Amino acid sequence: MASKLTNNGVFEGSRIILPEHREAYVLAMSEQERRGKPVLDEQEMQLIEGAILESYQECRSITLTVFNPFDDEELRGVVTAIDKPSRRIKLVRDEEDYSWIRIEEITAASI
């Protein structure tokens, strides 16, 4: 009986993984890849806000790098509205495609 329990015997070789356990494992592994939000100094924030204001006033296209815990997103469009109380901007990419972006989530901006 001892030979079945050791050296890849019946019990050791018949391991299975339940779908729920696999999903939990994959979720735990993806959470380990999560990264923290970078801290921007005052000068960088002023440069970002200046580029946003220039895009808004002159209707110029801007490229924004938006923070994401797993991978940063680069969005390109024109700033059409600035919501000061909520500190967010409306970025129009196409005529029908737009998104509201919180200014705190922007890590880089270039015109």
Rank of each mutant, 00 (worst) to 15 (best):
74 E>D: 12
11 F>G: 13
83 D>G: 02
59 C>Q: 10
16 I>K: 10
55 S>T: 06
75 L>Q: 04
32 Q>A: 12
23 E>N: 10
102 R>L: 12
21 H>M: 06
27 L>N: 14
92 V>P: 00
29 M>I: 06
27 L>R: 13
97 D>S: 10
97 D>H: 10
62 I>Q: 03
110 S>A: 15
66 V>N: 00
45 M>W: 13
53 L>Q: 11
81 A>T: 06
97 D>R: 14
9 G>M: 09
54 E>N: 15
90 K>L: 12
29 M>G: 05
98 Y>F: 11
91 L>D: 02
6 T>A: 11
62 I>L: 13
60 R>E: 14
49 E>A: 08
23 E>G: 04
8 N>H: 13
58 E>G: 01
61 S>Y: 07
72 D>R: 04
25 Y>W: 12
110 S>E: 15
48 I>A: 04
9 G>P: 08
6 T>W: 05
34 R>L: 12
108 A>M: 07
50 G>R: 12
18 L>G: 02
68 N>Y: 02
45 M>E: 13
31 E>M: 15
54 E>K: 14
32 Q>N: 08
65 T>W: 00
22 R>M: 11
81 A>F: 01
99 S>K: 02
107 T>Y: 03
102 R>I: 04
109 A>E: 01
14 S>N: 14
103 I>D: 01
25 Y>N: 05
9 G>V: 09
90 K>Q: 09
45 M>P: 02
82 I>L: 05
32 Q>W: 03
66 V>G: 03
70 F>A: 11
61 S>Q: 14
6 T>R: 07
53 L>M: 10
74 E>I: 05
68 N>D: 15
42 E>P: 02
51 A>Q: 12
78 V>M: 02
63 T>F: 00
32 Q>D: 04
33 E>I: 12
56 Y>T: 07
101 I>E: 00
43 Q>I: 15
3 S>H: 13
7 N>K: 10
53 L>C: 03
20 E>Q: 07
